[in-house]
Amino acid sequence: MAYRQTPSIEARLQDNRSRILEAARTLVGEGGWGEAQVASVAAAAGIATGTVYRYFPSKAELFAQVLSKVSQREVDVLTAMAQADGTATARLHAAVAAFVKRAMRNPRLAYALIAEPCDKEIDEARLTYRAAISEVIRSIVVAGQAAGEMLHDVQPDIAASVIVGGFMEGLIGPLSPLSRQQHEDTETYQREVAALADQIARMACASVAVAPATIQPISRRQA
């Protein structure tokens, strides 16, 4: 007779996995991939180091899972914006601006997700994440072309790749740990982030606009 785990054991195993991922996410957000070691993750999760390897065979696989989990949340947010009411141009602006604002809420974590040198497994997860975001942007471009708002003589997938590459590249400087900018929750900082998000979003829209775009606010929940 095959062994079957009881509901309580399954719940405990799932809880351990969730604690490991959350601890790893926190450590990456504090010091990047290089500073987050398995022993530190285990200590933060309140379990033995060996227990971590029961769930994740290697450090690289653990952090690839962290990247995938965090990234999926960002993809979900952008997908919701891509499906909101309003013109395609307004939706593109809102999606890019939201990505920038959300990245600047935790710059160290966002830098790790976007640009920090990492192991092959993590980089492969990063490429998957980037492709998923590009697909969301591509869907907006397709809608914009159909509505006559965006250039019809460019391939949507190429336009999406250029837009995503542009706004991620534009964030590397502001997110970099080498930046002298103080990431503080102040009104001045929030205004600077809002201005950065608007500028990057406007450039994204301009890259595919038939004519200079006037951005109209759309009704949506705060990102």
Rank of each mutant, 00 (worst) to 15 (best):
I158E: 14
A143M: 02
R25M: 03
D157K: 07
A97K: 02
G31V: 03
S8W: 02
Y53A: 08
I114N: 05
V28L: 00
R25T: 15
Y55N: 10
R220T: 13
D123N: 12
G170R: 04
V77R: 15
G31K: 01
F99I: 00
A80L: 11
H183G: 04
E22Y: 02
I137F: 02
D198Y: 03
A110T: 03
K69Q: 14
I200P: 01
T79I: 08
I20V: 12
V162N: 07
A146G: 05
R220Y: 10
A39H: 09
P156R: 01
A2E: 14
A97D: 06
L21Y: 05
I172F: 09
K69C: 07
A80G: 13
D157F: 03
A11T: 10
D15G: 09
D185R: 11
T51S: 15
Q72L: 12
D119V: 04
A23P: 03
R220M: 15
Y129R: 05
A98F: 08
I215C: 08
S8M: 08
E149N: 02
V142I: 14
V70Q: 10
E124Q: 13
A197M: 09
A24D: 04
Q145L: 02
Y3P: 00
R126E: 04
Q199N: 11
L151K: 12
S139N: 14
A131H: 10
M1A: 15
A36F: 00
E192V: 08
M150L: 07
G29K: 05
I9P: 00
V52G: 08
A159P: 06
L151W: 01
R17D: 10
V136K: 03
Q145C: 01
I20P: 04
W33I: 01
G148Q: 05
R105F: 06
N106P: 01
S219T: 13
L151P: 01
A2S: 14
K120T: 15
P212V: 13
E169Y: 05
E135D: 14
Q65N: 15
A94N: 07
A48T: 11
R102W: 01
T51C: 10
A223I: 11
T49S: 15
A209Q: 10
A146C: 02
R108V: 12
A194V: 05
S219N: 13
Q72M: 12
N106C: 06
P7R: 10
P107Y: 01
T214A: 15
P217H: 11
P174I: 02
G50Q: 09
Q14S: 13
A110Q: 03
S8G: 00
D198R: 07
H152Y: 06
G173W: 11
P7I: 12
V136T: 09
L67C: 06
L151G: 00
L175E: 05
L178N: 11
A90V: 00
E192A: 14
M1N: 15
F56M: 09
K59L: 08
H93K: 00
V52Y: 08
A159R: 06
Q145F: 02
